[in-house]
Nucleic acid binder design. Structure first.
Length: 533
RNA sequence: GUCCCCAUAGCUCAAAGGAUAGAGCUCCUGCCUUCUAAGCAGGCAAUCCAGGUUCGAUUCCUGGUGGGGACACCA
């Protein structure tokens, strides 16, 4: 039994009691009541349904409460809330249900193959701090969707060809020869280090060889940075692979077949505005000089993803790319191969105290992700990034982040895990069986225990919220609240009581559930759950 | 100029159109001889402005104000 199950049960009872269709009960849901209400869950639907049913909300609430009785206790509060109290049997069954693998799967995610692309930073320099946001968002969402039952493959697109890469090669070559990089090249010190490590034979290298070498080294760095940040990519897709497979030509042919490409002024254009009206003007696919635009290559890349069997493509991009979204959506729609969605997250501004630091790879002035992680730690970084919705404009004060790292809420949550592990250690030391049975029907659930149980049930809703809003921040909020419930319980009640084996067994069972949820929640965020702190 | 995003406590953030707006940091008052005080209990403190929709608006709509970002035959 879980909360979505009982929600569905109650909903169908409402449907039957008032003789309604699905649309009429669409807004029927269980919600956590505000703190001053003594109930486990509440339903606001009677108020909303008053107009439809042409009855006063309070009357509807009374009828609904009567229809719901039995399975739960239902009370009515003006203006028309139905407040639900769960039975102990339901609560225990729900807690036991949490332990089952796949207990959080939801039908709407079954059987769908999702490709999730994120970060995709250019391999022209070390990854900077802002990439941590996209990385956190993508990795946590991938884990959450998997927990909900989806099949997700994560992917990092590497632009390893093109002008920026040529510039990178020329900049490295200049450093190798002891010169300054070209003005529009890459000025950062990291190329000095790379040049110093080059073999002597590099003196005979072509420009292309310098580019190839530099990109390979940067890619190694990126892979190491992502691994250190706890982010796993199922595939690092090289743009060069796309060209070797003739991807852009295929994409262009597909668009032509569908009448979505035309020639004008010596160039080939994508005809999106005339047909689909999701972009304001047509864009060039092939330039007058015969070279592909990035746009065409990107279309080809998305076609490639579809050809690998993904039914749904999701890209996570920074807000600086938002203008690119309409044309990309129009183009993918024109391919007609499947669903496509872009999740935009706002950018990270770096502050030093009150001063805004402009970050630029080309100028070599930026804080790298590695530097941040080395200073603050992966757990604190990931929890920090995860705790903001994608639409917030993040001001990241690097000084504050370092100084306050110990005050990050992540430790508050992790501390729960350490404390509970410690209790189980002590139990073992005292010869207490951590898995002893107890008589559920005789348990008296106190206020703090009840708060914990309810919080545990709400995990399922929390993950759905994350999926709905494409953001892990609901989970960080949830974990912080669960942690607060635990710490409060811990302070007031002793778990291990040799005089009372039933009580001890019951509380150990409850805490095992709490620790399971804490560990799972932190794992979904890519944060560790330490056994000792 | 057009488009996107944001505005909640001194600071950083929460809040499916629901009830007395919820946390952390800061400041103040208490609590360690008992399973970890990275903790607990309590106090101070907030929805940018003006209209609209609604039984009900922090949430939706319109118009302001203030801030961030984007508008290439670049990638």
């Amino acid at each position: 039994m879980k909360i979505s199950k009982i929600e569905a049960d109650l909903k169908s009872r409402a449907k039957a009691a008032f003789v309604l269709d699905d649309a009429a009960v669409a807004g029927f849901c269980l919600a956590a009541p505000p703190p001053h209400i003594k109930a486990d869950a509440s339903i606001a639907w009677p108020i909303a349904g008053a107009k439809l049913l042409k009855k006063p909300p309070l009357k509807i609430a009374e009828e609904l409460a009567a229809a719901l009785g039995g399975e739960v206790e239902a009370g009515v509060v003006p203006p028309g809330f139905v407040n639900i109290t769960f039975t102990p049997a339901f609560l225990f069954a729900a807690l036991r249900g949490l332990e089952k693998p796949g207990s959080l799967h939801r039908p709407e995610y079954a059987g769908e193959k999702i490709n999730l692309e994120f970060v995709s930073a250019n391999p022209t320099g070390p990854m900077h701090l802002a990439s941590g946001r996209g990385a956190t968002l993508g990795d946590s969402l991938a884990r959450i969707w998997k927990e909900l039952g989806a099949e997700v493959a994560t992917e990092f697109y590497v632009n390893n060809v093109g002008r920026q890469v040529e510039k990178l090669g020329l900049s490295l070559k200049a450093r190798f020869e002891g010169k300054e990089p070209p003005e529009d090249g890459y000025q950062g010190d990291y190329l000095k280090d790379l040049a110093a490590a080059l073999p002597k034979e590099a003196a005979d290298w072509t420009d292309a060889q310098f580019s190839e070498y530099a990109v390979a080294e940067m890619l190694k760095l990126h892979k190491a940075d992502m691994a250190a940040f706890g982010v796993q990519f199922d595939r690092w897709f090289l743009e060069s692979e796309l060209h070797q497979a003739g991807g852009p030509a295929k994409a262009l042919a597909t668009l032509r077949e569908r009448g979505m490409a035309y020639e004008k002024e010596g160039a080939v254009w994508f005809g999106s505005s005339s047909e689909l009206e999701s972009d304001d003007k047509d864009r060039v696919l092939v330039k007058a000089d015969g070279r592909n635009t990035y746009f065409l290559n990107d279309i080809a890349y998305h076609l490639n993803k579809f050809s690998r069997g993904f039914g749904r493509l999701i890209d996570i991009l920074g807000a600086d790319h938002h203008g690119y979204v309409p044309r990309m959506e129009a183009a993918v729609k024109a391919l007609g191969s499947g669903a496509f969605k872009v999740i935009i997250h706002q950018q990270v501004s770096l502050l030093r105290g009150k001063e805004v630091v402009k970050m630029s790879k080309r100028a070599g002035d930026f804080i790298s992700l590695k530097e941040l992680v080395d200073d603050v730690g992966v757990d604190a970084c990931r929890f920090f990034f995860a705790s903001r919705g994608p639409n917030t404009h993040l001001n990241f004060d690097i000084e504050l982040a370092k100084k306050k790292s110990n005050e990050n809420p992540v430790y508050y949550v992790q501390y729960v895990h350490a404390r509970i592990c410690s209790i189980f250690d002590n139990a073992a030391g005292k010869g207490v069986d951590p898995a002893a049975g107890f008589d559920e029907s005789k348990v008296v659930i106190n206020k703090e225990e009840r708060a914990l149980m309810l919080k545990l049930l709400w995990l399922e809703k929390t993950l759905s919220d994350c999926a709905r809003d494409n953001s892990p921040h609901h989970l960080t909020t949830y974990l912080t609240e669960l942690a607060a419930s635990f710490h409060s319980f811990y302070d007031q009640h002793k778990v291990l009581d040799p005089e009372n084996k039933e009580l001890t067994a019951y509380r150990l069972f409850l805490l095992k559930s709490v620790n399971g949820v804490i560990a799972k929640g932190l794992a979904l965020l890519g944060v560790s759950a330490p056994e000792r702190m």
